[in-house]
Nucleic acid binder design. Structure first.
Length: 277
DNA sequence: ACTAAAGCCTGGCTGC
DNA sequence: TGCAGCCAGGCTTTAG
């Protein structure tokens, strides 16, 4: 379930393995994965292109090519990139293959087929319907406590649901929202506009801390070339989830059993004692 | 303008 | 053992 830290780690791994490589041949195996492009268009737009830079915006991975095109990819729930030798047999659920100029290939694999790719011109990248509506990056200066206050101010939505809205804050998903709210000791079910002035800076800091700690904790992963998959396997206690998936287990702060409630069809984990308001 | 909920999709798991 | 039904959740679309 890639959220900002997983996407950031995937980008770092991709840089390590495919930056500067030329795409010798590209194959689209599942139409759904690049719905705007026929397999023929996909192949012709990528053939011969060199990967000049790799980055991300929100949870979108961006490969900028020397053709001044950008390959945009979103992993959604189960998307992964795999870097393997040319001769390797692509695993099940491989939906696109990028043959590189170094006897390796990059695979896009996605069990649930929610992930997708598209190719846009570099000039229009930030005007696309995907990137244009995105809120500031959580580590940018623009994402300040004042900004957070201004977007929260009028919303009657539940705070947790609000924080999942990528047009308000980018990068958080279901897991890190639970983690950030626990860290800040704030109840997920209050209305966004009800967040007190006292708690607001705490939430702002918690969002940044939980994302930064998770990136840091995951960055010690073995740089195994075959696993550029955005999977998050924390190596340090700092990055381990304290709330998510731990229903019934003791709250690490006070020992009260962690509770799970469904909100907007998603599991929300919280401590009923530490996150009373 | 804002909010809520359904839908997309596969595989793992639970319970009959 | 088989299998229906639920669940996982990022994001878009539709409905209110």
């Amino acid at each position: 379930m890639p959220e900002l830290p997983e996407v950031e780690l995937a980008v770092r791994a991709l840089k390590k393995f495919v930056l500067g490589r030329r795409i010798v041949k590209a194959q689209l195996l599942l139409q759904r994965t690049a719905p705007d492009l026929s397999p023929r268009q996909f192949a012709s737009k990528l053939r011969g292109a060199r990967i000049e830079s790799i980055g991300r915006r929100g949870k979108y991975i961006l490969f900028t090519l020397d053709s001044h095109r950008v390959l945009m990819a979103h992993l959604r729930m189960t998307g992964k990139f795999l870097y393997v030798q040319s001769k390797a047999v692509p695993p099940k659920h491989t939906h696109a293959i990028f043959h590189l100029d170094n006897r390796h290939k990059l695979l896009f694999k996605d069990l649930r087929q929610f992930g997708f790719m598209k190719i846009v011109s570099e000039a229009e990248l930030f005007e696309t319907k995907e990137l244009k509506p995105l809120a500031p990056e959580p580590f940018s200066e623009e994402f300040s406590p004042a900004y957070l206050r201004s977007v929260l101010a009028n919303s009657r939505r539940k705070l947790k649901e609000f924080l999942l809205d990528q047009t308000k804050i980018t990068g958080l998903g279901n897991i890190y929202v639970s983690e950030a709210l626990f860290l800040a000791q704030i109840n997920p079910f209050i209305e966004a506009r009800e967040l007190s002035a006292r708690r607001l800076p705490r939430l702002h800091k918690a969002i940044r801390d939980v994302l930064a700690d998770s990136i840091e904790a995951g960055s010690t992963d073995d740089p195994n070339p075959e696993s550029i998959d955005g999977s998050y396997r924390p190596r340090t206690s700092k990055g381990r989830w304290k709330m998510y998936g731990r229903e019934g287990k003791p709250c690490p702060r006070c020992g009260t059993p962690i509770r799970r409630k469904t909100l907007a069809a998603r599991s929300t984990y919280y401590c009923p004692r530490c996150q009373r308001r």
